[in-house]
Amino acid sequence: MIWDNNFAVSIFPILLQGLWVTVQITLLGTLLAAVLGLVFAVLRRLAIPVLSQVVSFLVVFVRGTPLLVQAYVAFFVLPAYGVSFNALTTGIVVIGVNYSAYMAEVYRSGIQGVPKGQWEAATALSLPGVRTWGRIILPQAIRTVVPMLGNYLIQMFKDSAVLSAITVVELMATAQAIGSSSFRYIEPLTLAALLFLAVSYPASRLVNRLERRYAPQH
């Protein structure tokens, strides 16, 4: 027998626990990425000398390097400088920072998509900068950005498997641990794949629907 059903059933609860960790990483990571990405996008747009350039370079650099290597840096390098969390926290921070670079780009296009007339109207009304950003520009920019955030959330859900390499015990690491201790890889790896699919497929369908609903109005 290639596929052992009893074995598959017996490991399913442990895999579900792994899935739950993966979901937590994804939700917290997305939250971090959404906030950081917004900060980066606004900093770039404000064109503050040096700072804006540094932010721009960081965003491009993070997008140009592998998540796995970034995770290794956070896991192996940072503790040498006294910065150290547990693996799970490190994982969430790494994947959050990684995706913030992508989300900064999404926000940027959202901000660019707000018609120039909106800025001009805000100036004509002598609205202060914070008010202009907070009440006029960002609400319009973020509306068009929502579906893209959804896409990145799903992408992060799948990418978080990479964090198993720095000992975060999420779905992938759980499957791998079962495999190496029982010498049976088919059941845990296939079930892990199916669990990923079971979450990401309906989710991407949902985002597709959102995409149509939040289609830009202008």
Binding site: S160, A161, A175, G179, Y185, A193, F196, S204
Partner: peptide, 19 residues
């Protein structure tokens, strides 16, 4: 697209030998 690349890679590397 719906499953992780790492899962796919591990599946080909670790699970396929069982076939």
């Amino acid at each position: 697209r719906g499953t992780s690349l790492l899962v796919q890679m591990f599946w080909l590397f670790f699970a396929l030998p069982f076939f």
